[in-house]
């Protein structure tokens, strides 16, 4: 009974690993290849030239990683501030023109963001927002906010007003209600929305490029010229670094969330 199931599990795991891991194999090989002649399956020899370049101080990789993460986190924080009240309003109330509000918020999912960005570039120029982190953050909000709102709306849908009423009747004011009742319930949705927001912000090239005008250098700004410039080794190394940063960020968030829940349990276990 048991061993066939275990076998099945390991086969499934292996398949999953292959599906997720396999695309990375050629990336890794390409990033360290030195002479890779067709029709050879493996490179003739290896070199760390690409990695040396990517990790060198002068290439600005680390400051780009820092900028990418800074932008992604600020974008996500701002999204959170906007999305929680927006989701609350959209789920809890019915008002005139609600469909229009929803359409506006979710439009960036359907409309390619650069269409909007071309338009706001001139405005941002006049406002002095180009070439600033703030400008890039504002521009990143448009493609990321819909996902955040969507995720939090789903959480709000499952939160009956009774919970807040119950907390109210136990003497909880608006802030306490939000902190102790609403936030814990929204947390999974917030985590999902924040992950999407971070990933989407990290992957923006065109928006960052146009609004940042080269003064806000994120990882994709460094990566893209190499993809189109046809240096597969460096493009692969950058891609791997990018994937690594994204995975690490998500893992970090996951750990923080787990820690939060553990602290909750630990705190109660002590008392």
């Amino acid at each position: 009974m048991r061993s066939p199931r275990r076998l099945l599990n390991s086969i499934l795991f292996l398949l999953l690993f292959i599906v997720i891991g396999l695309p990375f194999v050629p990336l890794i090989l390409s990033s360290v290849s030195f002479g890779w002649q067709w029709p050879n399956v493996l490179p003739d020899s290896f070199s760390f030239r690409a990695w040396e370049y990517v990790l060198a101080d002068s290439s600005g990789t680390w400051s780009a990683v820092g900028t990418s993460l800074l932008v992604a986190f600020i974008v996500t924080a701002v999204n959170l501030l906007l999305a929680v009240p927006a989701a609350n309003a959209l789920v809890r109330n019915s008002f005139r023109g609600k469909w229009l509000m929803e359409a506006i918020i979710f439009a960036p999912i359907v409309i390619p963001p650069f269409v909007a960005v071309m338009g706001i570039h001139l405005t941002f120029l006049r406002l002095g927002l180009t070439e600033t982190i703030l400008g890039v953050v504002l521009a990143h909000i448009s493609p990321t906010l819909p996902y955040m709102v969507r995720a939090i709306m789903i959480s709000y849908n499952t939160l009956s007003v009774d919970w807040e009423n119950q907390a109210r009747m136990l003497g909880a004011g608006p802030i306490s209600r939000f902190v102790h009742v609403v936030l814990p319930h929204l947390l999974p949705g917030i985590a999902a929305g924040a992950s999407l927001s971070i990933l989407i912000s990290l992957s923006q090239y065109l928006i960052t490029f146009i609004i940042g005008s080269g003064q806000v250098v994120t990882l994709p700004i460094l990566l893209f010229p190499f993809i189109s410039g046809g240096d597969p080794a460096i493009a692969s190394a950058f891609s791997l670094l990018y994937a690594g940063i994204a995975v690490l960020t998500l893992l970090g968030m996951d750990l923080a969330l787990k820690k939060y829940y553990q602290n909750k349990k630990a705190a109660t276990a002590k008392g």
Partner: peptide, 21 residues
């Protein structure tokens, strides 16, 4: 405000906060 009335209320559902002991 309801929260300042020093009343208490029990609803049809127990509405215990699931993330608290």
């Amino acid at each position: 405000a309801p929260e300042a009335r020093r009343f208490a209320m029990v609803f049809q559902q127990s509405l215990l906060f699931p993330h608290m002991t």
